[in-house]
Structure formats: structure tokens, C-alpha cells
Amino acid sequence: MKVIFLKDVKGKGKKGEIKNVADGYANNFLFKQGLAIEATPANLKALE
């Protein structure tokens, strides 16, 4: 799953980066902790 990092995550990505991560990692950790959002077309456009 492609995500946009909202904060730096050690060993995974930095704020503003768009990366592929495992679905479970994104859903169970990144999204719940507010560290990333899904890289949907709307979210990508808002990032610009």
C-alpha cells in the first residue's frame, strides 16, 4: 500500500515521502498512530 508519511518514522520514511509499505503495517500502526495517510489521488493532490 502506498502511504504519505506525516512524520519521520525511523527506518521507514521521512515526513512528506511517499512509499510502499505492507498493508498490515499501514493499517495497524502508521494510520492508528497518525504517522501516515493513504496515498490516494485526493491526498496526493492536497500534498502538492
Rank of each mutant, 00 (worst) to 15 (best):
G11K: 06
A22D: 14
K12Y: 15
E38L: 11
V3C: 04
F5I: 02
G11P: 03
E17D: 11
I4F: 07
Q33F: 15
E48Q: 14
Q33C: 15
L30Q: 00
A42P: 06
E48P: 09
V9G: 00
M1E: 02
A42I: 08
M1G: 02
K14F: 13
T40M: 03
K2L: 15
K45P: 05
N43K: 06
N20S: 13
F29T: 08
K7Y: 12
A42N: 10
N20D: 13
N27E: 13
K19N: 04
K7D: 06
D8Q: 04
L6M: 08
A22Y: 09
P41W: 11
A36L: 02
K10D: 12
A42G: 10
L35Y: 12
K10A: 14
I4D: 00
P41E: 13
A26S: 03
I37W: 06
G16K: 02
K15P: 05
A42R: 09
F31L: 12
A42Y: 10
K45M: 13
N28R: 13
G11F: 08
G11D: 09
A26C: 06
V21W: 02
D8R: 07
K12E: 13
V3K: 03
E17V: 04
A36M: 03
K15M: 10
K45C: 09
L30I: 02
N28W: 10
K19R: 10
F31C: 04
K45N: 09
K2D: 09
A42L: 09
A36K: 00
K12I: 15
E38H: 08
E38A: 12
G16V: 01
G13N: 02
G16H: 07
I18L: 06
I18A: 03
L30S: 00
K14N: 10
N20K: 12
F31T: 05
A22T: 13
K32S: 11
E48G: 12
G11M: 06
F29H: 09
E48H: 13
D8C: 08
L30W: 05
A22F: 09
G16P: 01
E48K: 12
N27R: 15
Y25N: 04
V9W: 03
F5P: 00
D23A: 15
T40D: 05
K7M: 12
A36Y: 01
V9A: 03
N20Q: 13
M1L: 13
K7W: 10
A46Y: 12
N28D: 13
V3I: 08
I37Q: 06
L47T: 07
G16D: 04
E48D: 11
G11C: 09
F5T: 01
V21Q: 01
A22C: 12
K45I: 11
F31R: 02
I4L: 10
E17H: 04
L35F: 11
L44F: 06
D23V: 15
L44N: 04
L44K: 06
V21D: 02
K19A: 11
A46F: 12
K12A: 14
Y25S: 05
A36I: 07
K2Y: 14
G13T: 02
K32D: 07
G24N: 14
K10Y: 14
G34I: 03
V21G: 00
T40N: 08
G16A: 03
K15Y: 06
K7R: 13
G13S: 04
K7E: 10
N43L: 10
N20V: 15
N28F: 11
K2A: 11
V9F: 05
T40C: 06
K10E: 13
I37S: 03
L6Y: 02
A46Q: 11
F31V: 07
K32T: 12
L30H: 01
V9N: 01
K12G: 13
F5Q: 01
L6H: 00
V9D: 00
A42S: 11
K2I: 13
D8V: 04
P41L: 11
E17C: 07
L47I: 12
G34E: 07
N28Y: 12
L6F: 04
K15Q: 11
N27G: 07
F5H: 01
A26Y: 12
F31W: 03
A22K: 12
I4A: 02
G24C: 13
D23L: 15
Y25D: 05
T40I: 05
N27W: 15
K14S: 09
E38K: 11
I18E: 03
I18T: 06
K7F: 13
F31Y: 06
A26E: 06
K45F: 10
N28K: 11
K14I: 09
F29I: 13
V9Q: 01
K32C: 10
E38T: 06
V21T: 03
M1W: 05
T40K: 04
I4H: 01
K10C: 13
M1S: 05
V3E: 01
D23R: 15
P41T: 10
M1N: 03
E38W: 06
K2M: 14
K32Q: 09
K14G: 06
K14E: 07
A22L: 10
T40H: 05
G16F: 10
G24I: 12
K15T: 08
V21M: 07
K15E: 07
V3L: 04
K32G: 07
V3R: 00
F29N: 06
Q33V: 09
N27H: 14
E17Y: 03
K12F: 15
N20Y: 15
V9L: 06
L6K: 02
G13W: 13
K15R: 12
N43H: 07
K45G: 09
F29D: 06
N43F: 08
I18Y: 03
I4M: 08
A39W: 10
F31M: 06
K10S: 08
I18K: 03
I37H: 04
A39Q: 00
D23Y: 15
K10L: 13
F29W: 11
K14M: 12
Y25E: 08
V3W: 01
V9E: 01
K10I: 13
G16T: 00
V9K: 00
F29M: 06
D8M: 05
E17S: 06
A36R: 00
T40R: 03
K45Y: 11
K19S: 08
I18M: 07
I37Y: 05
L35I: 07
A26H: 03
L30Y: 04
K14Y: 12
D8G: 06
F5D: 00
K19G: 08
N20P: 08
K2H: 09
A26Q: 05
K32P: 15
G16R: 03
V9Y: 04
P41C: 11
L35E: 02
Q33S: 09
D23C: 14
G11R: 05
E38C: 07
Q33R: 14
K32V: 13
K19T: 07
G13H: 10
Q33Y: 15
N28E: 14
G24S: 14
K15S: 07
L30E: 02
L6V: 08
K10Q: 12
V3D: 00
D8L: 05
K19W: 08
K14H: 10
K45D: 07
K32A: 12
D8F: 08
